[in-house]
Amino acid sequence: MTRSETYSCLIERDDDGRVTALSVAAQDLDGSERHVRVNGYRAIHVAAGFQEVLRSARLRGRDLTSADPIRIDPQLGAHVELVLRAVKPLKRIDRISTVSEAVAGMSREEAAYWHAQINRRNGLRALRLLLGEGPKR
């Protein structure tokens, strides 16, 4: 059996069923953990792209509306983590929507490449510039 990173994601909703927060937790091969959480207005504008990536893995609708964390494979986990990390520092709604939709629309290979780049200096900034964000946040 080969070891790989483990990912889980959580879609938090209010009593009316509206998305209030999105989060991804990852555990690396060495045991260290990463957490990315987007809430408030960012979560509302990222939810469609986030769920689009999860649906591409043929997850059931029940999984997407459950209050329990969803365990996902490493390739899919890297893609949803990239969606959240790319929009986390952004403030403008139009940029949040543009970047999240572009990242969600990436192929698995492209998302894996950019996921590897986000830990490098200016990796996220380069991604956002490529996706048309411009130099300002």
Rank of each mutant, 00 (worst) to 15 (best):
R3Q: 13
S4Y: 07
Y7F: 09
S8C: 12
S8H: 06
L10I: 04
L10A: 07
E12V: 00
D16M: 04
D16Q: 04
D16F: 02
V19E: 04
L22E: 09
L22D: 06
L22T: 05
V24W: 06
V24A: 14
V24E: 10
Q27W: 04
D28Q: 06
L29I: 12
L29M: 14
D30A: 11
D30C: 09
G31D: 03
S32Q: 02
E33N: 04
V36M: 09
R37H: 04
V38L: 01
R42H: 14
A43E: 03
I44R: 00
I44W: 02
V46E: 13
V46C: 14
G49V: 05
G49E: 06
F50D: 10
E52A: 09
V53T: 11
V53C: 11
A57I: 13
G61P: 08
G61N: 13
T65H: 05
S66F: 06
I72M: 11
I72S: 13
D73L: 09
L76M: 10
G77F: 05
G77V: 00
H79P: 04
L82P: 09
R85G: 04
V87K: 05
V87C: 02
L90M: 12
L90K: 06
L90S: 06
K91Q: 13
I93Q: 15
I93H: 12
D94P: 03
V103Y: 04
V103S: 11
A111W: 04
A111S: 11
A111T: 01
Y113F: 12
W114G: 12
H115W: 05
H115G: 08
G123Y: 02
R125I: 07
R125M: 08
L127N: 02
L127E: 05
R128D: 01
L130F: 05
G132W: 05
K136I: 12
